[in-house]
Structures are given as C-alpha cells and as structure tokens.
Design a protein around this nucleic acid. Structure first.
Length: 280
DNA sequence: CGAACGACCTGCAGGC
DNA sequence: TGCCTGCAGGTCGTTC
C-alpha cells in the first residue's frame, strides 16, 4: 500500500502532534512483523523524547533522545500498514491487526500501528541512516540528484524494463507499483522499454514526471485503494487522479485508447499502448 | 555483477 | 453458503 506519498502523508499528520513530547508507554501486542520487534525496544524508547521525524524512502524515522543518547525508531508500513493517532477520548478497544501503540505525553494520545499482513517493521537504531536496511538506498526522487543524467548513468548497459529500474530502491527510493505506472504514462514511456535504451531527453522527462506525480499525491494525502488511512484515520484522495493504474480496459484519459496491463517482475503494470509505444 | 523469482502474511473478490 | 484460486500498495534472500 504505502509508497512515498503515503509515508509522507503519515509523517505530516503525526509530526505536529508528537514532536517534542515523550514516549510514556510502549505496548506491543505482536512482535512478529517482517522482522521481530527487538525484545529490548521498550526499554530503549520508553521515556525518550521525540526530537523530530523524517523520512528516507518509505522508511519513517522517529528521532529520539534519552539520557543524552540519540537514536531513532525505524518504521516501515510494508504493504498494508498504517499509523494513526488515537485521541485520549478514543475508548474503543484496539482492533484486530493493531500490533503496537506508543503512548505520547501524559496519556493525551497514542500512536497505533495497524498492519494485517505484517510486512512492516519497527526497529531502533542509534544511527538509522547507517542501518543495513537504509545504508544502500538510492537517491530521493524529490532531490535534485534525481534527474535524467542520473538515470542515464544508472541504466548504462542494463536491459531491465524501465519500470523495474524505477522501482529499484537501490536506484531511487519511494516509487512503488502505483506511481511507477503513473510516472511512465506521464512521460510517454512504455514500461517494458529496456532501461539502457532510453535517451537523456526521455529520462529528463521521466524524472520530472516522477517528481510531479509524487508531489501531487502528497498534496492529495496519498492514494487510498483499499484501506490506506492517514494519521487521522482518513482516506487519501489521489486515487481519483490516477490515469492508468488499475484501469485496464478503460479509456486512456489522453487519447481514449484502451489501457492495457501486463505483468512485469510479478507486478501488475498499466499503460496506454498508443501514448506509450514500445521503442526498442 | 545483473536479473528473475519465491518467500513472508492476511483479506478479499470472483468462479464454481 | 462454502471452497478454491488469484491478487493486493514491499522488499529481502536465493538462484541462475
């Protein structure tokens, strides 16, 4: 579910409410997420102060300080995860698939992690950017370093489908299955085009399209297809802006041709055969 | 090294 | 109604 815009939407929602406050209680109902939640996590973060929040790719980082020691919670939402705020007067019991809660401040609110498939993770690291999960990540798509020249350099002599390249987190982070299809449609590039065959001009356009699509999605609060909810438990609105994702058989919004789908790397891909001709 | 693919886990839609 | 299959926003590890 969550790609970069959904993670950013989550960050934007919770940061103003929890920054500067202390984690007063940690409750873990299930530790067996994608990685086991470390057994010493509660000890490490209880009574820590939340210094700030940041994002690296699809990882949400909650920076903490406790007894002059610094570190960060590394949160990943996997395919089906969400973090939401439970207000003090939220007396409903936790729901199925709520796996942990962090009580913030004087019981005023709790952060609650919900994840049916348990592909997400919760870890703690003194230096999160050096953690093995983060250390080898590629550039941020919204940074200036992500540009046509970068894509040309990274795709040299590579024949993978450009959609696979775009979804390779060692190249560029945050672009998942939805936004990869959308960006390629925006850039008029067929998803199966061998990555090494694409010109600088086309890659410049693709980089601009990735940024544009991601920024639009963030502005709309992310995409809700099934169950993504933001920190307030509300849906995102970018789904209504999607041009091709999930729309096989429907009319292309640009040329009215029928949108097609195919499987690339075991992931559904959507494109307009007329707007995105395959040029090998 | 790059590339393809199975694995992890649950829920849901669709076919019979 | 129930059973079965396939599919879902991610990404790591194994294999060729």
């Amino acid at each position: 579910m969550p790609e970069l815009p959904e993670v950013q939407t989550t960050l934007n929602g919770i940061a103003p409410l929890i920054t500067g406050q202390k984690i007063t209680h940690v409750r873990i109902l299930r530790r067996d997420l994608r990685f086991l939640i470390p057994l010493d996590l509660e000890d490490k973060i209880t009574h820590a102060r939340i210094v700030s929040l940041s994002r690296r790719g699809k990882y949400l980082l909650i920076h903490l300080e406790k007894n002059h020691n610094h570190g960060a919670l590394i949160v990943h939402l996997g395919m089906s995860g969400s973090l939401r705020i439970l207000e003090k007067d939220h007396t409903l019991p936790l729901q199925k698939h709520d796996h942990y809660t962090l009580t913030i401040g004087s019981q005023a609110l709790r952060l609650c992690y919900h994840d049916p498939r348990r592909f997400g993770c919760l870890l703690f690291a003194a230096n999160p950017l050096a953690h093995p999960l983060l250390a080898n990540l590629g550039v941020e798509p919204l940074d200036d370093a992500f540009c046509g020249a970068y894509l040309v350099a990274k795709s040299a002599k590579r024949r993978v489908a450009v959609k696979s390249l775009l979804m390779n987190a060692q190249i560029v982070v945050g672009v998942g299955n939805i936004y990869a299809s959308e960006a390629l449609f925006c850039a008029h590039i067929h998803p199966l085009t061998p990555a090494g065959n694409i010109s600088l001009a086309a890659y410049n356009k693709l980089a601009r399209c990735v940024k544009k699509i991601l920024k639009q999605a963030i502005a709309q609060g992310g995409t809700t297809l099934k169950d993504f909810v933001n920190a307030e438990g509300k849906a995102g609105y970018f789904a209504q802006e999607l041009a091709v994702y999930g729309k096989a058989g429907q009319a292309c919004p640009r040329c009215q041709s029928e949108i097609e789908s195919l499987i690339i790397n075991q992931r559904a891909s959507y494109f307009c055969p007329r707007c995105q001709p395959l040029t090998i």
